[in-house]
Each structure stands twice: as C-alpha cells, then as structure tokens.
C-alpha cells in the first residue's frame, strides 16, 4: 500500500508542467524515502531527476517499493481538475495497475476522486556520478528564464556559450539575425538570497549547450525563486530547482563540443 498526502496540489501541478514536455512518460519510484523519477528526453541529450522526499508529505506510507509507470501528460491534465490549494492524496495498492488521485478542498466541502491507469514502461536507470563542479552559479530563476528566452527569441540562437569567471557569467549566442550576449555580475548584497547572483568558482569554465533545452528547463521556474547552474569542463550541466527543503527537480544537459 502506498499513500502520500500533499498539502497543496499546486506543487504537483508545477512539477508536472516543468517536466512533461521533455519526458512524456516515466516510472515514479516509490520507496520509504519518498517519490523519485528519472527520465531522458527522446534524443537522450538531457536527463530529468525528480525527488520528493517523504517528509514533504503528511502522511507518507509505503509498505514496499513500487514502480508506477505514468503518462506525465495525462497526469498533468488530470491534475488540472484540482484547485491549487486542494489537498492531494495519492494512493496505490501493491501490484495495482492504477494510481488513485483524490483532491479535497481546504474547507472539506468538495472531494474529487480519479483513478489513473498505469503503464509498463521500459526505462533505463542511469548512474549519475558524484562530481566536484568547477563553478556553481545561483541566480533568480526568473532571470535565468528571461535570459534563455531573450537569447532564443531575440537572436534566434541555437547554441549558447556559457562562460563563468570570478567577475560574472556570460551567456552568448550567434543566430540568424546576428549575435548577442548577456552578462550577469555577482551581486554584492546577500540580504535577499532569492534575488542574488552568487558564483562559487574553483576555476573558470566555458561550455556550449543547445539553447532549446535550457528554455525547456525554465518551465520549472514556478517551482523555486532561485536556480543553480553547476558546470565542469566537458561534463553535463546541472540546472537545479530546489523545492524548499523537501526535494528538487534537476535537469542534466550534455554539452556540445566544437568539432
């Protein structure tokens, strides 16, 4: 038996909206630690890792580990039937081929119950090595979204070069209408951590990435006020959105190398 109760349906809506265009179906792995998911986009260029720790739910019950194969787009549509502040309860029996979703209004005067069919999904589980990153940049998530959008839509760039030095982080593109760059400097004040740009750097690093993936990752912006980018020479970029202290959505993106 699996049961997980989440105070706000809104969080699950945001998570699904953040990942459903990149990975349309995935296995939710349920264990006593919580709910996790790993999946690659169809081109195997990026990987999504989700963790919702059990302490983010009240209650959370998992008698034995379960793998729930879910069509994320269908689940996102179903979650739209919940109001943002509805209490979400997910339940599944062991060996069940359905996941039950229950939405309860805060005043407890409306209860919606849905049964979602599960699927058998063959998915490869990848080992993500522990990495010491050359540079970790934390910035407002809205700023990151804006930069990706402007460099994509404004310049028509396909590849973005991200160069991180002690002075700042520079995003550059060359596109159909010309070229451009946006540089963010480290902010002096850390009074408002969510509004700050903070660079922790062991050594300067420059990498090239496909911009359209970064734009896709930015759909997770509503999940967190800040985002971190972790970069090391010739390894995938990590774009992490933390959900308070109860979990994260991480996107890994393989770099492009100059031929």
């Amino acid at each position: 038996m699996f049961e997980a109760r989440l105070a706000q349906s809104n969080l699950m809506k945001k998570i699904l909206d953040a990942i459903k265009d990149l990975i349309t179906e995935a296995n939710l792995e349920i264990s006593s630690g919580g709910i996790s998911l790993q999946g690659m986009d169809s081109s195997h260029v990026s990987l999504v890792a989700l963790l919702m720790r059990s302490d983010g739910f009240s209650p959370f019950r998992c008698d034995r580990n379960l793998t729930l194969g879910v069509n994320l787009q269908a689940m996102a549509k179903l979650m739209k039937c919940a109001s943002n502040d509805d209490i979400l309860t997910m339940t599944a029996e062991d060996n069940s081929d359905t996941l039950n979703l229950q939405f309860e209004s805060p005043a407890q005067d409306k209860l919606s119950e849905f049964e979602m069919k599960l699927m058998d999904i063959d998915s490869e589980h990848l080992g993500i090595p522990e990495t010491e990153y050359d540079a970790v940049i934390r910035m407002p998530s809205s700023e990151f979204q804006r930069i990706c959008r402007d460099l994509g839509a404004g310049i028509g760039g396909e590849s973005v070069t991200i160069a991180c030095t002690k002075e700042g982080v520079k995003f550059s593109v060359t596109g159909s209408v010309g070229s451009g760059s946006i540089t963010l400097k480290q902010t002096g004040s850390v009074d408002k951590p969510a509004e700050s740009v903070v660079i922790n750097m062991a050594q300067p690093v420059t990498l090239i990435f496909a911009l359209r993936y970064l734009n896709s990752f930015a759909k997770a912006t509503p999940l967190s006020e800040s985002v971190s980018l972790s970069m090391s020479r010739e390894v995938p970029l990590v774009v992490e959105y933390k959900m308070n202290d109860t979990g994260y959505v991480r996107f890994y993106l393989a770099p492009k190398l100059e031929d």
């Binding site: 690659m40 195997h44 260029v45 990987l47 990848l126 080992g127 090595p129 393989a254 100059e258 031929d259």
Partner: peptide, 14 residues
Amino acid sequence: QTVQLSIHDYFPLQ
C-alpha cells in the same frame, strides 16, 4: 561547427 553529445557519454547504465 559543434557536435551534440549524449547523456550516455557520461552516465553509465545501472
């Protein structure tokens, strides 16, 4: 010219 690498180039199958 750039070459797009794959996640499989970095993360091993488990």
